[in-house]
Design a protein around this nucleic acid. Structure first.
Lengths: 124, 124
DNA sequence: CGATATACTATACAGTGCAAGGTATGCGCG
DNA sequence: CGCGCATACCTTGCACTGTATAGTATATCG
């Protein structure tokens, strides 16, 4: 299984992180682990990838952070979605669907050379 | 209908152009028009977007160019896929499927807030 | 005690979309 | 003829994003 490339993932990590936080507050290290575990073999994010995105998201006021000490004594910076982040996630999702539609329209037509795994229904 | 954002499209234009050329040789201006027409309302690429990508693709030896004069007297630079480009397109397609799978896994679970248009089959 | 996992941070780089601006020519219209 | 429009190409520079690299600190376990 090949790892996913940067240029493929580009612009999607923000959405992925928002999606994780959509399920409830979490902190950087856990987010990295969860995403990697969730997409084992395909996604292998480093901490140097995720933390800057978190800082950018906070800067854009989509998420808020709060330092908290876990039961194991470690300080953790918990992030949670705020209204702006919630809206951003919804918008990102819409954008994702649009992209999927475009790719389907353009690539789909000549993609018969590489048949799709399965897709019985049309546009995603 | 909102236009698709840069960060959403990021890294996909190369694939889109390769897809068009997969159907036969073409030239820059026509490629722009075709992509925009094909995805009317969503995609609005400028020439300043496409030409640099064509140059990069040629630099990476995925496509080759050949000047040719059209019947209307205008000089056109026709591009065609070569073997490397063909392989790159297949790889890009694989990457796209991987991305779709990742997005499905992570976003799909909590995406119930924004129900998908239709999808009866699972992974794209 | 040393290794490992946890948990955070900062810096610097490369690739990419795209806005902005420029050149040149053929064609139709008033 | 002059004007605008569509055609057809090009370059420069910016902003954003993933990520490699490097650094810090502490709890836990063999």
């Amino acid at each position: 299984m090949t790892r996913i490339r940067k240029q493929t993932l580009d612009g999607k990590i923000e959405t992925l992180i928002l999606a994780v936080l959509e399920d409830g507050p979490s902190y950087g290290y856990a987010i990295v682990k969860q995403l990697n575990r969730r997409c084992d073999g395909i996604l292998k994010l480093g901490e140097g990838t995720v933390y800057p995105v978190l800082h950018r998201l906070e800067e854009k006021q989509m998420i808020s952070s709060k330092w908290q000490t876990a039961e194991n004594g470690r300080p953790r910076k918990y992030y949670r979605l705020n209204r702006k982040g919630h809206r951003a996630f919804a918008e990102n999702l819409r954008q994702w669907r649009m992209l999927a539609s475009v790719m389907e329209k353009v690539v789909g037509s000549c993609a018969s050379i590489l048949p799709k795994p399965q897709l019985k229904g049309g546009i995603i």
